[in-house]
Amino acid sequence: MTKTQEIVIRSLHRIEELEDVRKLESTIWGETDSTPSHQTITAVKNGGLVLGAYMEEQLVGFQYSFPGFNGQSAYLCSHMLGIDVQFRNKGIGEKLKLAQREEAIKLGYSVITWTYDPLESVNGYLNIAKLGGVCSTYIANCYGEMDDLLNSGIPTDRFLVEWHIGKQETTDYRGPGIALDYVMENSLIQWDTDKKGLPVPSLTLPLPEQECGTAFVAIPKDFRTIRDTNIQAATEWRMKTSEIFTNLFQQGWQVTDFIKNSKTEIPVHFYVLSLK
């Protein structure tokens, strides 16, 4: 059991606990596709993991993983992480991931993988900058067309993250202190802003030469607002980032860092890519 401030995180094993997880999942994403508790308890009994985040005995977040195998080695496939909308932006997601790392090591895993929408900047900052995950695989329309509360309207493209937990000794931000002006000038996606101050992708720069060593790709700070208010701009962001990342990964680049830009007048953050 891990306790940090008012949040208690524990590994779940009882069917009653896992049914609470199912109910929270349905609240977040919708009832139709919630994962049955008989499936999560079977995963838990066979090398999987379900973690619950509690505040005063109320379940406010969860994480669900199951074993994966690529034909050569086993890994933990981190399938779902959800936080009650009333408890977001309190660091609960990071606490769940750190507890997941601790429990996965106990179970004998050295790698955890998961997918996430690369345009969700909060997840990008957590997964890449803070946890130290890397990505060199882009999955176009990973889950097909989805009508849930978070994915409707555009293709469900995803990054496949690899988190090498045996090597990760710290969650400190790994940013090398690159000047923001340099990052902006060299971002492979440039942008304009609309009347609401939201970024709209404009031109794209040529892919960098191999000797450059570092590449940058801008994404919106607040993609959900763009998706909810300007679906055309959201689709343009999806299509341009899909093309850029797919081409970079094919040429041997991988995402290794994330620059969180704190200037309110600049409406984008940046992925950092390095050659493998």
Rank of each mutant, 00 (worst) to 15 (best):
T137V: 15
T137Q: 14
I139N: 07
A140N: 05
A140Q: 12
C142M: 13
C142T: 05
Y143K: 03
Y143W: 13
E145I: 08
M146A: 03
D147G: 02
D147Q: 10
D147P: 01
D148Y: 12
D148C: 07
L149S: 06
L149M: 11
L149P: 00
N151A: 06
N151C: 10
N151S: 08
S152A: 14
I154C: 01
I154H: 01
I154S: 01
P155C: 02
T156M: 02
T156I: 02
D157V: 00
D157T: 00
D157N: 06
F159Q: 11
L160M: 10
L160N: 01
E162H: 06
W163G: 00
H164F: 07
H164G: 00
H164V: 11
H164S: 01
I165Q: 15
K167F: 13
K167G: 11
E169S: 05
E169C: 03
E169V: 09
T170F: 10
T170N: 09
T170L: 10
T171H: 03
T171W: 06
T171N: 11
T171C: 11
D172E: 13
Y173R: 13
Y173M: 13
R174D: 04
R174A: 01
R174P: 04
R174F: 03
P176C: 03
P176N: 06
P176T: 02
G177T: 09
G177W: 08
G177V: 12
A179P: 01
L180N: 14
L180Q: 10
L180F: 06
Y182V: 15
Y182N: 11
V183R: 10
V183C: 11
V183S: 15
M184R: 15
M184Y: 06
M184C: 14
M184W: 10
E185V: 07
E185S: 10
N186D: 04
N186T: 05
S187V: 10
S187W: 14
S187E: 15
L188F: 12
I189M: 14
Q190K: 07
Q190L: 15
Q190R: 11
W191Y: 15
W191H: 15
W191A: 03
D192Q: 12
D192I: 04
T193I: 15
D194P: 11
D194F: 13
K195A: 15
K195F: 13
K196L: 15
K196Y: 14
G197D: 10
L198Q: 15
V200Q: 08
T204N: 14
T204H: 05
P206K: 04
P208G: 08
P208N: 06
E209A: 13
Q210K: 02
Q210P: 08
E211F: 03
C212I: 08
C212F: 04
G213F: 12
G213M: 09
T214E: 14
A215N: 07
F216A: 03
F216P: 00
A218D: 01
A218Q: 02
I219W: 11
P220E: 02
P220K: 00
K221S: 09
K221F: 14
K221W: 11
D222Y: 05
D222N: 11
D222M: 04
F223W: 10
F223M: 13
R224Y: 10
T225I: 09
I226D: 05
D228W: 01
T229W: 06
T229V: 12
T229C: 12
I231H: 01
I231D: 06
Q232N: 13
A233F: 10
A233Y: 08
A234R: 09
A234S: 04
T235H: 14
E236A: 09
W237S: 04
M239R: 12
T241G: 02
S242D: 09
